[in-house]
Amino acid sequence: MSGVGALRSVGLRTAPTTRGLRRWLLRPEAPAAVFLVVLLAAFSLAADRFLTPDNLESILVQVAVLGIIALAVNQVILAGEIDISVGSMLGLCAVAVGTVATATGGLLAPLAAGVATGVLAGAVNGLLVTLGRIPSIIVTLGMLYALRGVILLVTGGTWITQIPDETRVLGLAKLAGVSLPVFVMFALFLIVNAVSRNSTWGRDVFAVGGNRRAARLAGLAIDRTRLLAFALVGAFVGIAATIYVGRAGSVQTNAGEGLELQVIAAVVIGGTSIAGGRGSALAPVIGAVLIGVILNGMILVGVPGVWQSAVLGALILLAVTTDALRRRLVGGAA
């Protein structure tokens, strides 16, 4: 059962009958969602400061960059490909944002520069994968290094500082008491969710990832579908970079290092199959929030920081094992 398997008749709005509940539990992000609720309860009991509006909001702000990028990478993974270049891509977009911001100020020009840079890099990924017929893991691994190299060449290794306040709005400002990064993340989620469920491209992404041969024999534009997914990653990285620069107030040459693996972790933990074709737009958001909750909760409960990596790793293994077991139990879906 996948997001599209559940396309019309199932959804969050299903009446809470047992049948509806059963179907909901079969949704790809269900285990992560259940686990998230359990964790929230456990941390609330263990640490007084955990379940406060301020703390919960700060968790969401912290995972906004991760969540936004994971939303787009999720589409790439659903289409049966992968993108591990987003760490360096975020760095490069941040350099573009920072450079334009210090030159012109304002918000729109730096944002546009970041998005344009991202789309360009994403399009290169997509073209090499589709026209070049090179496996995406190789292409994006190459880009991971190449883009980091470009950052160093462009900046000469120096930081970009003194980002003007009006550019930092997207990272720092609040609207009706909620930080803008959180707003942006949820707005983008709503858009991607609608597109993923109801648009032809969204459907093609699942089809290409679910059975590429059948999709090809059905005449789908496999290359265009995948190219768009890679370009979408670039656009979302550009937006995320503007938030990132806003929050940091400066751009370091190592910005975004290691982010690519966290993004994939968020997607997989959330319940999208790394093999493609199964998953949902909600999965990366839940995955990102889950990561944020664990990191935050561990600190509040007083677990030493050295445990972070071990816990995250265990979480990923747990997620993929759950997915494999569930698919075997549900059966039918080979």
């Binding site: 059962m1 996948s2 599209v4 398997g5 396309l7 019309r8 648009s199 032809t200 459907r203 093609d204 699942f206 089809a207 679910g210 059975n211 041969r213 059948a214 999709a215 024999l217 059905a218 005449g219 789908l220 074709g277 199964r278 879906a333 080979a334």
Partner: peptide
């Protein structure tokens, strides 16, 4: 392996080739 996208619904499989026309 060639005809169906197995995780899809019956409807989504039938409309696979003509989605553009149905949208």
């Amino acid at each position: 392996s060639q005809g169906l996208v197995l995780p899809f619904t019956i409807a989504a499989n039938i409309s696979l080739s003509i989605l553009g026309r149905l949208s």
